[in-house]
Amino acid sequence: MKIEIAYMNKTIAIIPARGGSKRIPEKNIQTLGDLPLIAHSIIYAKENKAIIDEVYVSTDDEEIKKAALQFDAKVIDRPESISGDLEPTVSALKHVLENISSQNIENVILLQPTNPLRPIDLIKEAFNKFQTEKKDSLFTVSRNYHKLGKIIEDKFNPFNYSFGQRSQDLEPLYFENGLLYITKASLILDNIIISENALPFEVNHIFAQVDIDTPDDLDYARYLYQKTIKPQI
């Protein structure tokens, strides 16, 4: 049964959160502060209700589903066929759109639960840029300041610098930090999140360094939460 959405030109948030994490068991419901990990992205989306009309969680896990419902997100049950380790994120997003009345949805904001800490005004600033520039997708990036290279046959080959070059003189390189993606719903239905003309939105903030994949990543997120967020609430 499809969930009906009545208004035109909707912007929805989708939070894909499958179960079965191997490095951190039950990762998406591990606690960060006093909340399960997934709750941080749900709350963040709901705090931006001027932009986001509905918040959906796509999951194959009953405990994640319970947590999402507790924080008033709508849940779409993800089938096992698109819940594997190697399944691309776009499959979950497309499945959500195909299981709601998507004809009135214009934009999808992807919030990954493994990036639970985000600058307060990020969605507002990024969405404004997305609309102003009239792009069909946007994703957040951060400046990389490392001297990078490859090791080939036991020899280190610099990639973005020359030996002896100062770090401050490096050519700017950027990495996809995973904090936020905005995409036209029509692109997602064509299995695309980041289009060829996607707008990179630069975010140089300590939260951009948090992408939880290992226990050490989770420990770091908890440390930052205690230092930067919890004292303010």
Rank of each mutant, 00 (worst) to 15 (best):
H95C: 06
L111K: 05
E106M: 12
D85V: 03
D85T: 03
V96S: 07
E87I: 14
S102D: 09
H95T: 06
H95R: 05
E106Y: 04
K129Y: 02
E63W: 08
E80F: 00
F130T: 08
D77A: 14
I100Y: 02
P119L: 05
T114E: 15
K94E: 13
V108S: 05
K124A: 13
D60W: 00
N128M: 07
T114K: 08
E80I: 11
A126V: 07
L97M: 12
E106W: 01
K74M: 12
V108C: 05
N104W: 01
A92G: 12
E106K: 13
A67Y: 02
P79C: 04
E125Q: 11
F130W: 03
N104Q: 11
F127M: 02
N128A: 14
P116N: 12
E98P: 03
E63Q: 14
D72G: 05
I105P: 00
H95L: 08
S83M: 00
L93F: 07
P88S: 06
L69Y: 06
E106V: 09
Q103S: 08
I76A: 06
S83R: 01
D72M: 14
S91G: 02
K124Y: 13
K94H: 03
A73W: 07
K94R: 12
H95M: 05
L117S: 05
D77L: 13
I64H: 05
L69N: 12
I123N: 03
F130K: 06
I100T: 13
D77G: 10
K94T: 04
P116L: 13
A92F: 03
E62H: 12
S91D: 10
Q131G: 02
V90N: 09
N107T: 10
D77P: 01
I82Q: 06
E87M: 04
V75C: 15
A68K: 00
Q112R: 08
I82P: 02
Q131W: 00
E98A: 04
L97I: 09
L111Q: 09
T89G: 11
T114L: 06
I105H: 07
L110S: 09
F127P: 06
K94N: 04
A68I: 09
E63P: 03
D60V: 00
L111F: 07
N99G: 03
L86D: 13
I64Q: 12
N115T: 15
I64A: 12
I82G: 08
F127A: 02
S101E: 10
P119V: 09
K66D: 13
F130H: 07
A68E: 02
R118I: 15
P88H: 04
K74W: 10
P88K: 04
E63K: 15
I64G: 01
Q70V: 01
D72W: 12
I120G: 00
Q112H: 04
L69D: 01
I120W: 11
L93T: 04
E125S: 11
Q103E: 10
I64S: 11
L117C: 02
E62N: 12
L122W: 04
L110C: 06
